[in-house]
Nucleic acid binder design. Structure first.
Length: 919
RNA sequence: GCCCGGAUGGCGGAAUAGGUAGACGCGCAGGACUUAAAAUCCUGUAACCAGUAAUGGUUGUGCGGGUUCAAUUCCCGCUCCGGGUACCA
């Protein structure tokens, strides 16, 4: 074999480990560059060819940066806590730590075969106590900080306590939960429990009652996607909405900074837009409506105060505490029954069902301007968690209110000009307001301003900004996660001292909840502090460990700090982050929040963690089908199947090559088909295909190991890039892989003679050869800089094709080419580099620069167009002026033919580009 | 419903700043080498029309308009596909 990729790849992978080629240290003589991949959750299924797509791209960029003189940090690790391992543990009794370790080993083996330049000395695993010590540490810091809205940052809780001692709650502007104001004297008179309860309203990591999906039979909180039709997917047990004490992170305090920070990031617009929608800033006003026969007003939030005169009813969320307070005795039975009914359904179901239901409470508010009585209803189309959990309904101009009004025959009063409110609600920003007292005749934005002024003046309300984003529920009633460094004394939550971290996950004999309904940690023996106080039983969610992992890579073995000042100062932030869009609103929000908190508290020097971010597209499966004639064991080839009545059956894509079925392998694949008959076309069985999600059940999973075994890692890497633009989703289709593999063989032959002996010429290259090389250098540099790796592969092919045509085997041409290709195909290039006589890695070389001198052209073949259509080509010297070019073209017999004797109306000459004549 | 992408040969895709549409690869067809096959190499390959042929012409980047000497590229209006999000007042 000429190009022996198996031997070459094994040899260099071993070399890299032995020589520690990819180990990096702080080196102030070189600029840093930090390239990060979103670390994987090590599932039991291993990697399929879709997973490495982003890793290959980031690896190419890392190697390119290294060759360009940067000190590149390119680490990898595992997001190792998580639900699948725990579910598996419940089913099989195997400890999640054991299965996780096994899966990690398998991932590592697969990753190593692809030839990545990770510095494995810096590997992190979120389930490692040495790692999660710092997750717990960050949680404690959040517990001990509050958010000061005056300074716009997190500050120590001690500062807050000092302020309380001096002035009570007066003068404090904090992101906090609602509570009664108090004086300094009041504070001083409080006991410890009262003070701790009060401070809990301020902490950035705090405990509060939150509405969750609670499954009593399983004894745990479930995520929305684990519940369907009011029962748990696993086991079919009923699930109810319940308010439960949970740990939360005050992400909302950072809403504005998370929103505004986006502007400076080099992320795709679509991703930023997703985050903006998730944060969901909306400007409006809070308006107080006096409740008839009641002292306290009902406060609502609206973005359209201009529609105040169109309000015909009010609606409360079923969970609103107002419901119980104001419902009249006559309505009570009906309302209670409704609220109970609604509470059985989770939020997701309520949102999915847009039919309007509700009940009248019997109570009324008084309209602040007209003095009219307006009925108060209760309905589940109003969400408890947004705004104040109550709305003013304007059915003429809000479709949801319109639907509700129609369902319950409530009046619909138009206050905005235009539209047909008989058919649907009407909404407009540039229409005029009607029927509305002092704002009648104003356009909507002016009307809003005017109403806001008036309600402020009369003390009815204030302009307000609402955010859709909510504080993150941070506790799970689960085993396989980070334990909280929290203990309870007399029912009060206290932080564990920092020197007792990490608080390691205890052993339990079962991963099920306890009989009392406590989380699995309730089973742990001695789950107490040294002094005998009970420790928190819930654990942290999946996003805890992934929120600051990029920082830990900078200084992974530090046992004194999350990272040293020195490491932070040198590595700073992630220059390039590559990963999937699925983390747009989870990890990427939490991680930014976490980083901003650490920034506020001077742990890190950067306000944003990920400067540039690229979302690689998903690789979908390309399923293959065989067609069985109904009620037979005979299969008919794709193009003949219409002559029969057939059933399409998924067939393992690994026994299909270029859509041709390997019939022998097919017979062995499933005993049912051992005796099958086949109707062939041209001697082959051709399979049909479809693009579907890559999954076991579709038999379309392709494992990178299989591809590497057959073609080598360099071919896999290049082919994944060749498939199309990085950010686009595309099906995995091996139909083109031969072309890439042929490229490597062709490249190999440039360096070797017919006997496969390495043979290069020392001759001085011709201008033509230099041009091919330098043209390629320029293109590859451009391609890499804009992450257009698919075109790089094409350009390498063109280069090798042209050098083959020139029969060029000159060292001065091929040596730079090797460096150019090294980021893409590290194994073959290391081999060629060493054959070239070097005894160090090719990655210590310098990336070649294009010399424009070799690219200078003296002639250009002009496309000559008539009315924009290209008709013929004309070669002219490049030095000519537009006038000379025009003269030369008009003199050409080809032009005369098209001009047909008449002079052109106009001639456009763009030197070096095009000639266009208008006739 | 709303937001964001996308649509180019038989297929994946290219065209980076409005300037030769279809680079590169696959597939397919024909040929060379071979007893044969594989591998390799060479040639051709958007569609349609005319011609034995070289060649010539017409159409053509989802659809309909527009701007321009010139549009895959910019603008307006649609269709379809993918993703995100959804009673957020």
């Amino acid at each position: 074999m000429d190009y022996n990729f198996r031997e070459i790849e094994k040899k260099w992978q071993k070399y890299w480990v032995e020589k520690k080629t990819y180990q990096v240290e702080i080196d102030r003589s070189r600029p840093k560059y930090y390239v990060l991949d979103m670390f994987p959750y090590p599932s039991g299924a291993g990697l399929h060819v879709g997973h490495p797509l982003g890793y290959i791209a980031s690896d190419i960029f890392s190697r390119y940066k290294r060759l360009s003189g940067y000190n590149v940090l390119h680490p990898m690790g595992y997001d190792a806590f998580g639900l699948p391992a725990e579910q598996y543990a419940i089913q099989t009794g195997q400890h999640p730590a054991v299965t996780t370790e096994k899966n990690i080993a398998r991932y590592r083996e697969q990753l190593d075969k692809i030839g990545f330049s990770y510095d494995w000395e810096r590997e992190v695993k979120t389930c490692d106590p040495a790692y999660y010590k710092w997750t717990q540490w960050a949680f404690l810091r959040m517990f001990n900080h509050w958010y000061n809205r005056k300074t716009n940052k997190a500050e120590s809780i001690e500062i807050l306590i000092a302020a309380f001692e001096k002035n009570g709650s007066a003068g404090i502007d904090a992101a906090c939960n609602e509570h009664e104001p108090f004086t300094a004297a009041g504070w001083k008179s409080m006991n410890e429990k009262q003070r701790m309860d009060l401070l809990m309203n301020y902490r950035i990591a705090y405990q509060a009652d939150a509405t969750v999906n609670w499954c009593p039979a399983l004894g745990t909180v479930l995520a929305n996607d684990e519940v369907r039709d009011g029962v748990s997917i696993r086991g079919g047990h009923p699930v109810e909405q319940r308010k439960m004490k949970q740990w939360l992170l005050r992400v909302t305090a950072y809403a504005l900074r998370l929103l505004e920070g986006l502007d400076l990031l080099d992320w795709s617009d679509s991703l930023k837009e997703m985050q903006r929608n998730w944060i969901g800033r909306s400007e409006g006003a809070e308006i107080a409506f006096r409740i008839k026969d009641y002292n306290e007003p009902l406060v609502i939030f609206t973005t359209r105060p201009d529609t105040l005169w169109g309000v015909t009813f009010m609606v409360l969320a079923p969970e609103s505490e107002w419901v119980e307070k104001i419902t009249t005795p006559a309505q009570k039975a009906e309302v209670d029954a409704y609220v109970t009914e609604v509470k059985k359904r989770n939020e997701r179901e309520r949102m999915a069902d847009t039919r309007k239901t509700g009940r009248f409470t019997g109570a009324y508010v008084i309209h602040p301007f007209t003095g009219e009585e307006i009925p108060i209803w209760v309905s589940d189309y109003v969400l408890a968690g947004y705004g104040t959990g109550a709305i003013m309904a304007v059915p003429a101009h809000d479709q949801r209110d319109w639907d509700f009004a129609k369902a319950f025959q409530l009046p619909i009063v138009p206050v905005i000009e235009g539209g047909d409110i008989e058919k649907e609600a009407f909404d407009s920003w540039d229409a005029k307001v009607i029927n509305s007292d002092f704002i009648t005749g104003l356009v909507v934005p002016d009307a809003i301003r005017r109403v806001n002024e008036e309600i402020s003046r009369r003390g009815l309300g204030t302009p307000k900004v609402q955010y859709r984003i909510r504080d993150a529920i941070f506790s799970r009633q689960r085993y396989w996660g980070e334990p909280f460094p929290i203990f309870y004394k007399d029912g009060i939550a206290f932080p564990l001292p920092e020197d007792q971290l990490p608080l390691t996950l205890p052993e339990v004999e079962s991963f099920q909840p306890t009989e009392k309904g406590e989380p699995p940690l309730g089973r742990a023996k001695h789950w107490k502090t040294k002094d005998g106080y009970k420790l928190e039983l819930s654990t942290m969610p999946g996003f805890a460990g992934s929120s600051a992992y990029y920082l830990r890579y900078m200084d992974p073995k530090n046992d004194k700090a999350l990272l040293s000042k020195e490491a932070d100062d040198y590595w700073q932030d992630v220059d390039l982050y590559i990963g999937g869009t699925e983390h747009a609103t989870g990890h990427l929000i939490y991680s930014r929040f976490w980083n901003k908190f650490l920034f506020d508290t001077s742990v890190v020097c950067k306000d944003e963690p990920y400067r540039k971010l690229i979302n690689q597209g998903m690789i979908q499966g390309r399923s293959s089908f065989v067609y069985r004639i109904k009620n037979t064991n005979t299969f008919v080839s794709l193009n003949l199947k219409d002559q029969y009545d057939t059933t399409a059956i998924h067939v393992d894509v690994n026994i299909v090559d270029n859509d041709q079925l390997d019939i022998e392998a097919f017979k062995k694949w499933n005993p049912e088909y051992a005796a099958a008959g086949f109707i062939l076309e041209d001697g082959h069985y051709i399979c049909g295909w479809a693009v579907e999600k890559m999954s076991k059940s579709m038999f379309n999973v392709v494992n990178p190991d299989t591809i590497i075994e057959r073609y080598g890692a360099d071919t896999l890497r290049m082919y994944e890039m060749f498939l199309g633009p990085l950010e686009q989703s595309k099906p995995w289709d091996t139909n083109g892989i031969d072309g890439v593999h042929k490229f490597f063989r062709k490249l190999w032959r440039l360096f070797h003679d017919q006997m496969n002996a390495f043979r290069l010429s020392q001759e001085v290259p011709t201008p033509q050869e230099l041009k091919v090389l330098h043209k390629t250098i320029k293109k590859i540099r451009d391609d890499i800089e804009r992450f257009s790796f698919n075109t790089s592969v094409s350009n390498f092919m063109i280069c090798v094709n042209e050098l083959t045509d020139l029969k060029c085997n000159k060292k001065d041409i091929l040596e730079p080419l090797v460096i150019l290709l090294a980021p893409f195909a590290p194994h073959i290039t290391e081999e060629l580099w060493s054959l070239l006589g070097h005894d160090t890695t090719v990655f210590d070389a310098r990336f070649p620069e294009a010399n424009p001198e070799y690219l200078v052209e003296d002639v250009f073949t002009y496309p000559v167009s008539f009315n924009g259509k290209m008709r013929f080509k004309l070669e002219l010297p490049l030095g000519l002026s537009p006038q000379e070019i025009e003269k030369a073209v008009l003199a050409d017999p080809n032009a005369q033919k098209w001009l047909n004797g008449a002079p052109p109306k106009k001639v456009i000459v763009v030197p070096g580009k095009i000639i266009n004549m208008v006739i």
